[in-house]
Design a protein around this nucleic acid. Structure first.
Lengths: 214, 214
DNA sequence: TAGATTGTTAATCGATTAACAATC
DNA sequence: TAGATTGTTAATCGATTAACAATC
């Protein structure tokens, strides 16, 4: 009965959030589904459906209260209580993610980094310490860490994930490009820049072909 | 009649590619759709359908030729002729992307960076020069650049994209989080870490709630 | 040949869009 | 009240999965 929100809907919520932040800054009190739709190039019915999934209701003739909806979505997305995470694989991508300030909006805080490279261990990234990989599981357990960001080489992804899942980590943000196999309650979110790049590469290939001939 | 491949299929092709690279290394000659499906946790019919979309055919009782399919997918994804791109916004994320070696697999080469920050201009990232933003359009035009990676703040995304589109850029990989509005042949691929983070944040919120009470 | 595996057509599923009654 | 806008049910669309005939 409590209909589960789809991944597709969930991915649009931060987009609504970012429009709402702007509208709130401008002091706008209410916003209609039509206006949200227009700004994000979506269908207005889809907007109403997405918001309904989060159990927020608007007012006919008025729309949705901007500050109320803003706060509601932040709550819904879990953006209002801090979650601690560790990052495994302090390479270039890992270090960039630690420095990426987008995390803060969702109150995700990376508290420690782990790596196998002795040259990196003991160093710091953005004020966070890099520890040896073998300490990761114990660290996660001791600090009740629930989230791990995996920026390890693809070969290392599965063994590292297994180890951390054993230590109680419940969610993985997996940048390794290797699909993970983990027991059921564990959440895996795969992020694969290669996929996007393939899409771009193919489309550009087609464009230039069209441009060149035919 | 020449059925257009869907984005969903296209995103799976690099996954097949990475399995094929591994199989080719191991010297395996043929692979069945069932084996590809198992390794990537997909349905085997879906695998056959995806490969059919690229116009590659297998042999009943044998499967798909590993080296042939590998080469075919690389071609299909445009991974076999080099494409030059510029990157606008040499911040942390931008610099990380330049350093990210995943690009090379698809023969996408970032040849120059642009930024407005005088402290950055004149500097280098991974051997590539950082130029002032106002030179970007002329540079793109002079060098027939077709692809731009946008790692600028969201407010700057639309004006920068307009300027580059005027200069002949046909494809944008947009990390700004701001939806772009561009004329029709132009390809935009949006990459939004905030979306993924929202999905993760929500799912973890649910997990911990389940763990805590109910 | 018999049987495994492909390629394709049909059925299902889920997400988006259209239609419209409810409401303020 | 009249009319704009919500919330929801029905229709459409596209992608995935199932079924199965073709083929080597």
């Amino acid at each position: 009965m409590a209909m589960q929100i789809s991944g597709a809907s969930l991915r649009r919520l931060p987009q609504y959030l970012s429009v709402l932040v702007r509208l709130a800054d401008e002091g706008q009190r209410n916003v209609t589904s039509a206006e949200l739709a227009r700004r994000l190039r979506l269908d207005e019915t889809l907007v109403r459906k997405d918001l309904a999934m989060t159990k927020f209701t608007g007012k006919p003739r008025v729309g949705f209260g901007v500050p109320e909806l803003l706060a509601h979505l932040q709550d819904f997305l879990g953006a209002r209580h801090t979650k601690e995470a560790i990052l495994v694989g302090a390479g270039r991508l890992g270090q960039a993610l630690v420095a990426y300030h987008g995390f803060e909006k969702y109150n995700l805080s990376i508290v420690a980094l782990f790596d196998t490279n002795p040259d990196k261990i003991g160093g710091q990234v953005e004020g966070r310490q890099i520890y040896p990989l073998w300490q990761a599981a114990a660290f996660a357990q001791r600090n009740s860490i629930r989230i791990a960001v995996l920026t390890v080489p693809s070969d290392a992804a599965q063994p590292v994930a297994d180890m951390l899942a054993d230590a109680g980590v419940l969610a993985f943000w997996n940048f390794s490009g290797h699909p993970l196999n983990l027991p059921d309650p564990v959440v895996v979110l795969n992020e694969d820049l290669a996929e996007s790049l393939a899409v771009l590469s193919h489309r550009v290939g087609n464009l230039t072909m069209v441009g060149a001939g035919e």
